[in-house]
Amino acid sequence: MAVLTYLQAISEGMREEMRRDESVVLLGEDIGVYGGAFKVTKGFIDEFGPKRVIDTPISESAIVGAAVGMALYGFRPIAEIQFADFITVAYNQIVQNAATIHYRYGFPVPIVVRAPSGAGVHGGPFHSQNPEALFTHVPGLKVVAPSTPADAKGLLKAAVRDDNPVLYFEHKYLYRRIKGEVPEDDDFTVPIGVADVKRPGRDATVITYGSTVHTALQAAEDLSAEGAEVEVLDLRTLRPYDEQAILDSVGRTNRVLVLHEASKTGGVGAEIAAFITENAFEKLDAPVMRLGGLDTPVPYSPPLEEYWLPSKERVVGALRRLLEY
C-alpha cells in the first residue's frame, strides 16, 4: 500500500480507470494543460491527450449535458465542476436529464460528476458549499462523499464503473491535509452504497460523511479519555445509503448523532434521522440528534467561518447531551 493524500488518491483513481478503459474521458474547465484548479488532473493531458482530456468553455450545463450525450453513445465521461458551488448551473442537466433517462428510456447514463465541495478554506459563500442534499432527494442519482484517501480512490473507481450518474463530492479541505494508505490493486474499489465503521464504540454513534468524519473521530478520541466509547459510522454513499449498517450501529449503541458540514435544515441528516425513527424506534435510548453547519450561507472572514462550521467542541457538546439523555 502506498501513502497518498486524498487528492493524489482521486487522481490515481482516475488515472487507473483511464488506463483500464479507453471510453473514460474527462470534461471540465482548465483540466488540460493547467491540470485543473486543484491540480487533480495534473499531467493527464500529457498521458491521455486532448481528445480524452477535454478543456471546455465555462459552461457547466453544457459540460454535464455533453457528458450525458457522450454516455448515451459509448463513453464513460467524468465531468469536473471546478467548485461544487457551480453545480447549480448544471442542476437542470443532472436532475432532469441524467437522472431520468434510465427510467424513461432504459438507457444507462454512466457519468461521474466530480465536485470539490466544502468550507474551511476561506472561500466565502460561493466557494464553500456542500450541495449534496440538493441531489440526494433525486431518484436516479447516486451520491458519494469520501472522507479518506482509500475511500476517495475506491469510490472514484466504483463511480466510473457504475452505469448510473454518480455525483462525487470531494471535500477540498481534505485534499492535502489528509493522508492515508491506499491499496494499489488495479481492481480495488469501494462499493457504492456501503458504509464503513471508522471507529467502533458502544455508547453512541456519530453517523457522518466527508470532512466531518475527521471532526467526529477527534471528538470520539476526546470522549474516550472520559470513558465514553463513541462509534463513528462513515456513510460514504449518501444515496443509496447503507440502511443495514445504520440499523446495526443503532443496535449497538442506541444513541445517534447525525453530523454533516452542510447546513442542518433539510440536510442528509434529516433523512437519516427519519429513517432511524421509522425503523429502529424501539432501539433508541434518546432522540436522534442532528448537527450541521449553520443555516446561513458560508461566511468568508475566518472567525465567522470557524463559527459556521460544526466544530469538534460542538460535536463533543452534542454527544455529551446525547449520552446524558
Binding site: 474521458v25 481528445k51 480524452r52 477535454i54 459552461s59 450545463s61 453544457a62 459540460i63 454535464v64 449535458g65 455533453a66 457528458a67 450525458v68 450525450g69 457522450m70 454516455a71 448515451l72 453513445y73 459509448g74 463513453f75 465521461p77 437542470n92 442537466q93 432532469q96 436529464n97
Partner: peptide, 18 residues
Amino acid sequence: HLGSMIPVAVGAAMAMKL
C-alpha cells in the same frame, strides 16, 4: 425543459467524432 437537449445532442456529436 426547452433547450436542454442541445448540450446532450452536442455530446452525442462529440462521441461520434471521438
